[in-house]
Design a protein around this nucleic acid. Structure first.
Lengths: 215, 215
DNA sequence: TAAAGAAATGAATGTGCATTCATTTCTTGT
DNA sequence: ACAAGAAATGAATGCACATTCATTTCTTTA
């Protein structure tokens, strides 16, 4: 025998893998998932097309992992904010505001991560991380309820609602082709204000009429 | 000359066009955009593949028009509810609840319309109708502010937030592959409660009340 | 009933990319 | 320095569908 996978090679391999993932991030951040074809990513990573397939089984899985990397990081950031000092309301406001701020500062990438059509694997990953974000927020809402800062409410539904409000608020402005760029701070603040208000309010006594249930 | 496009032919043509659009609706409602290929739609419409292209310039535009048809109808329904009698709060609650209810009752279709990855043309149409929904809601919020039912707030942001909350609340449950089907009524009610609370925002008197005396 | 024009047909074509794989380049132990 | 194995390469392949278009069927007027 005359070859053993040495430590050094192992590292180079890992390194190349990382570079490919980074390249996905870079390319997607520039041309979105739609424009991100494997050959382009490979070129951006300084690697041949075929090499990509020595590290990832398919385009879908590669992209899904790249998304997981980013989303995972954002979840960590949010979780860190959520774990900081202060009232639940303040921490919730910070979590939302910082998420929004970061998204607006990397528009194209954020849009791709949040909303751009992509392979099913990518969509699955998105779902998973949406849930992760929602969990962080849900805990904050529960904290707030426990301390009496927020009224009793279904924290699970509220968390989903906040995530929805957050992404919707971001997608509108983000989807524009780079024009009409609302000031990042302003946008983030407006969204934050809504989110905070949304969980702070005392629940409205459920209205129950039922006309209009047509068809 | 020996041929003139008569009234009857005109009607048959229009009719065929409509049938194709209906077929898109049916197919997408069953297998989603992903599975809806032109040949299948044509078959469902009882028409040859090529015929589709005598009525629509491309798959993307066909599907976008089909989406516009559905979304337009839903906007109308919501607008009708919004224009009915009652307080702004009650009308808002009904608008949201009925939208949610209708969506859950046609899960697959709703998911496709709201969130499934699709051609860029379809995405553009989606954006447009999201704005239409948001406009209806925005007006309700403004009404409520005017009557003092809701506190002063940025109605535009609030409307976007509600749409986001609504769709997010729906997508989670809707994205599941038909399993874990939460009771439609219950889900719709939970989402509605959140949405109403979100804009109602009577500041919660944190210090002076026990958090458990409502619910 | 025939000729002129449209509309419908669906098999064949074209395209855009992901994926493969025969060949080349690099690593390692002797 | 060499042989044995791995890893990298990128041109060639394959595939899934949208789209086309030569042919057929239908409609209309004279």
């Amino acid at each position: 025998m005359a070859y053993r996978r040495t430590e050094r090679v192992e590292e180079q391999l890992q390194d190349k893998r990382d570079r490919i993932l980074q390249a996905v991030r870079a390319v997607v951040g520039e041309v979105g998932f739609r424009g991100a074809q494997v050959a382009i990513v490979a070129e951006a990573a300084g690697v041949a097309t075929g090499t990509v397939y020595r590290h990832f089984p398919s385009k879908g899985e590669l992209f899904a992992e790249a998304l997981a990397l980013n989303a995972g990081h954002e979840v960590d950031v949010m979780a860190a904010v959520a774990a900081s000092e202060g009232t639940a309301a303040a921490r919730l406001a910070d979590a939302v505001r910082i998420f929004a701020l970061r998204a607006v500062l990397a528009r194209r990438l954020a849009w791709a991560m949040i909303a751009e059509p992509a392979d099913p694997e990518v969509d699955a990953a998105r779902l998973k991380y949406r849930r992760a974000f929602a969990d962080v927020i849900q805990r904050l809402v529960e904290d707030g309820i426990a301390t009496g800062e927020f009224p009793a409410q279904n924290a699970r539904v509220a968390a989903a609602g906040l995530i929805g409000a957050l992404t919707e608020g971001l997608i509108g402005p983000l989807a524009q082709d780079a024009e009409a760029p609302p000031d990042a701070e302003t946008l983030a603040r407006a969204i934050t204000a809504f989110c905070l208000q949304a969980v702070s309010a005392r629940p409205y006594p459920a209205a129950t009429r039922s006309p209009h249930d047509e068809e």
